[in-house]
Amino acid sequence: MPTSADVARLAGVSRATVSYVLNNTTAVRISEPTRRRVREAAEELGYVPHAAARSLRAGHSRMVLMPTPHIPAGPLYSHFLNELQWALRRLDYTVVQHGSVGMSGDEAARAWAELRPVAVLAPGAGTLGPRGVNVLKRSGAKAVLTLGPERVEGAHALLMDQREVGHCAGAHLLSGGRRSIGVIMPAEAGFETFSAPRLEGVRAAAEGTGARVVPLGLAYDEQDAAELAARWPDLGLDAVFAYNDEYAMLLMRALQDAGTGIPGDTAVMGADDLLIGRLLRPRLSTVHLEMPSGQLLAEFVDRVVRDPGGAPEVHHLLGSTAVPRDST
């Protein structure tokens, strides 16, 4: 097994220089040619720094733990998480995704704490409580952040208010004269964290207008969509806001197959503004979501890790804009 001493001999530098370069230390000035020579030597020998040994020397790890979401992440959310992981890696953090399905609250926090992460970014609501935050901090986590619709005491809050998404969609449909709006709620378990607030948002937009809002369960399945489309005339709806573009496209195709005119009989609106929605005919109206850049969020995590003594901060991350197209 190659060692740092082997890398130092091949590169013609000291072991300390090897450590500075491979650990991305910024406190010591090292020329770019030297850095390149060290990296090339490490690559030639197949040398990889020992993360556990580095953690022992530093007194903490460089691991950012990201528990996997309890629901399937859509394309937009997946892109955001990928960008965040890339940006954290550029800041010399090791990102570890933890499979936490079936665990929540204190049980999940204890499992995460066993890995001694320097930071934890917990997605969604209900996965972490105040006691869990305390468990993580006592185990050495310098930054505990939650990404979801609600704050958790003791943790930094990265709020994504899904009610705004529903309100934006509802306001657009109402402005077009629609007065009977169906709201598609995914039948699969775990989506309530996002779908319930979006329903609340549509209801808030309709309040005082005389319009009715009807929640409708729908599994992401062609047969289920066909069955809903078959009874659509009996529902008396002139508009529908689907949980996201994928559910909107599924239902719109089924409605068209059943003879429902889009948008004449029913206006259809989704959320996420996926490219494929623009390729449909009619083009899908949607809610465009403004997500923060992964780079900015990674820099925030790094700042909290370096200065963990401050009071928990609250940041509102999600912006919503209606994008009217042919389907409404």
Score class of each variant (00 low, 15 high):
Q162I: 01
N244I: 07
A196I: 03
V101E: 04
A169V: 00
T328E: 02
P130H: 04
P72E: 12
S180P: 03
Y220Q: 08
A298R: 13
H156F: 04
V304M: 09
A122Q: 14
A41V: 01
P130A: 15
P312A: 14
A206N: 07
S293W: 13
D273T: 12
R198Y: 05
L115W: 08
R203S: 11
D106V: 10
E153F: 04
E83T: 06
A311W: 00
T328N: 07
Q295K: 15
H167R: 11
R198E: 02
A119C: 13
V301D: 01
L199D: 02
M1I: 10
L158K: 12
V48E: 03
R203Y: 06
L145G: 00
H60T: 08
S55I: 02
E40F: 15
I184F: 01
E83P: 01
R15I: 03
A119W: 05
G74A: 06
R283Q: 08
A271K: 11
A219M: 15
L275W: 03
R15Q: 07
Y220P: 03
E192Q: 13
R37H: 02
E299H: 07
G177P: 04
R37N: 03
E207Q: 07
A254F: 08
A322D: 02
T26C: 00
H98L: 14
D326F: 02
T26K: 05
L235N: 08
M249Q: 12
M63S: 00
N134V: 07
R89M: 04
T209M: 06
V21R: 05
L81K: 04
G201E: 07
M269L: 12
L174A: 15
D92F: 09
E246H: 15
H156G: 06
A267L: 14
F191S: 09
L158E: 15
T25V: 01
D257T: 10
R35G: 04
S139Q: 07
A52W: 00
L174K: 15
T127H: 06
I262L: 08
R231N: 03
T68E: 12
Y47T: 02
G129N: 10
R325H: 03
G270R: 14
P72M: 06
P186Q: 13
L147W: 07
E188L: 12
L136A: 05
T26P: 00
T321S: 13
R178V: 07
L318E: 02
T193E: 10
T146V: 10
H79D: 06
L76G: 00
P186D: 09
R303L: 04
G259Q: 09
M103R: 01
Q223S: 05
R212M: 05
S175D: 14
H316K: 14
T260D: 08
L10Q: 02
A11I: 02
R303A: 05
R283H: 05
I30V: 03
H167W: 01
S14R: 09
M291H: 15
H167G: 01
R15A: 08
T328C: 15
L199H: 03
G140A: 10
V101W: 04
A87N: 08
Q223L: 12
A189M: 10
A8H: 06
L136N: 08
A239L: 11
P69L: 15
R306A: 13
E40A: 14
E207F: 04
R116L: 07
A108M: 15
R89Y: 01
P49S: 09
G140K: 09
P324A: 06
Q256H: 10
P263H: 11
L284N: 08
P69C: 13
D272N: 11
